[in-house]
Design a protein around this nucleic acid. Structure first.
Lengths: 341, 341
DNA sequence: TATCATATTGGGAACGTTCCCAATACACAT
DNA sequence: ATGTGTATTGGGAACGTTCCCAATATGATA
């Protein structure tokens, strides 16, 4: 990594001072005559000079790099949010890299250390931690992706969990389902999403249905979680009498559950209905195609980027929270049932 | 990003020199008495000191950061390679971030600049560029992911394209297919994958089948590419007489084609057969489940990491190339056909 | 006690760039 | 010719850490 040449050598060859070389190559620029600039550029080419951005960042206290921390890089939901944020932030001159945490606190801590030690000017993240104060104290602008149950003084973007949950449940209700289960997580950042549970409970109460704790499944929002959900469901005595639909916390869970149910001889969209959350690409491709609530990933990613840029411009501005509505995407995983009441 | 305190303040508070503070916090370490270390750590805590890794990197000429450049972060194939590389490289003390290029040269160039300007100690990448010399001249250890048709003096890992292609074609042949099409790409890094086309041509010649240029489709390895493939296929006059199977360059393309064919009333696995490449998670979930050739992502990612670490230890070692065999994963997208000869 | 080996410490300088400000150059108006 | 405003330039110092090496301290052994 030792750069073979520094601006001192470039300056010498171009017959100018190092300050003039710096003015030619640096973000801040400054006045340089056309003649001098030309000579500097020629020297750069001749010497094959490349800038040392560590030195530049150390002196200028700015790296123009932004970290986007995602909990599961292989889930297209997060990939697409990252991509949308990247588009916007790059347009503003930043370089974006993604840190994949795999829902792991130790990995998160590693990335937090990178941020704390001056490598990044800003951070966009979803995190398993509940220590928002620690995040606020990282010393750079931060935007949190994903709604938190408790109000936090930190810029936040996400989907409106309550109304998105409601969308799914209302659709299930309208299609005749009366025994609606919930598969959600008490792992990762979902720990803080009691909003989904709350919306579910409110809905159930509102419809005057007796709550059945046995049809609330706590599983990971992963393929394995989907398989576990089906194991737990089938282990219920007379599950057909207890559940006619399950609202799953995300598509990856739902898709895996659909497959596990098929393997168990249960036909989704007839014997039981499933709704997911996210609308990842695979949701449309499986059979039956998954009915789900689409989270507008581009909007979320773009809004996160905008909030971060605003925070960079004005670190003291009041924190903002942008929640986008989910959109019901009706496909084939929900049966039309006879009205049971 | 201005760190509030520097090691000078810590040293003052702890009653030691800045060198002793540096020895306590730095990677290189060095002798420090237990008493001094304790005082330094207490001062660090009291002052809330955080290290400036730009300064450390500038002085030590090492950042302990590695960039993994992927062409499509939302394709689980690349995500999983990145993750496997991350696991291994992190275990060796590096911090891994992912750069998403979206098959775009300008985005690649941006990341190449980051590498050139000393931000990363190493690079693992798939690239659309054919300028391997430029990559070699970046000044850091590099491992290329994905086989190139032309031999290159650069560390490379990937799947053995010829034998993987052959696996798919042999299976199609063995199941009675005689009019096998090929859907591949002339975009992105696939431009350099004439290996696949070569293996296909060799196979066709070997079986004594008259080549039909009309059933070689040049489309992007994306969902849109899959839809385009189906449009082009259906636009062929009497396509049923010209094609009984298509080997698709990747799963994302194949999955989208399956769905587009279903929309057009064509039943995959009966009217026509499709084989993919990669075995991304969704391949198993769609209906019919996709027969594909699995590329061992973990092995590829892990091998890339190992090669990079070896290169870091010994920059002058001869370049290596590790190609892993594909594995045929038989699912439902291929019909058993009557033998036509 | 003296000698030797090792541990520990501290100060100066390096790393490569940007920032800062004084000095100089240049152009234009009076 | 003089004064004013702006452009351009260059040298010193800053940024925060690590490296380097000489000096000192410590412990073990003869």
């Amino acid at each position: 990594m030792k750069t073979k040449t520094s601006i001192i050598e470039v300056a010498r060859l171009a017959g100018v001072s190092k300050s003039t070389v710096s003015r030619v190559i640096s973000d801040a620029g400054g006045s340089v005559s056309a003649d001098a600039e030309s000579r500097v550029q020629a020297a750069i080419r001749e010497l094959g000079y490349t800038r040392n951005s560590l030195a530049a960042g150390l002196r200028s206290q700015k790296t123009w790099m932004v970290l986007v921390m995602v909990p599961d890089i292989a889930n297209p939901f997060w990939s697409e949010i990252a991509r949308a944020a990247q588009d916007r932030l790059e347009a503003a001159g930043n370089s974006i890299v993604v840190g994949n945490t795999d829902w792991d606190e130790k990995r998160e801590a590693r990335y937090f250390d990178l941020v704390r030690s001056c490598r990044f000017d800003g951070l966009v993240l979803n995190s398993v931690t509940d220590d928002i104060k620690m995040i606020q104290d990282l010393g750079v602008p931060v935007v949190l992706v994903g709604e938190r149950a408790e109000a936090q003084d930190i810029d936040t973007v996400g989907t409106d969990t309550s109304t998105a949950t409601r969308l799914a449940l209302e659709y299930l209700w309208a299609t005749g389902h009366r025994r609606i289960g919930l598969a959600t997580s008490e792992h990762g950042s979902e720990r803080f999403l009691s909003l989904r549970r709350r919306a579910y409970d409110d809905f159930i109460a509102e419809k005057g249905v007796a709550p059945d704790p046995g049809i609330i499944f706590s599983v990971k929002l992963s393929e394995e979680g989907g398989r576990e959900l089906v194991r737990e469901l089938l282990a219920l005595g007379n599950w057909q009498d207890r559940v006619d639909a399950i609202f799953c916390g995300n598509d990856i869970l739902a898709i895996a559950a659909i497959n596990a149910l098929r393997d168990a001889g249960v036909e989704v969209g007839r014997d039981i209905s499933l709704v997911g959350m996210d609308d990842i690409p695979a949701a449309a491709h499986i059979f039956p195609a998954l009915t789900t609530v689409r989270k507008p990933r581009s909007l979320i990613g773009g809004a996160a980027a905008e909030l971060l840029l605003a925070r960079m411009r004005d670190p003291g501005r009041p924190s903002e929270k942008h929640l986008f509505p989910g959109e019901l995407i009706i496909r084939g995983s929900v049966a039309e049932r006879q009205n049971n009441t």
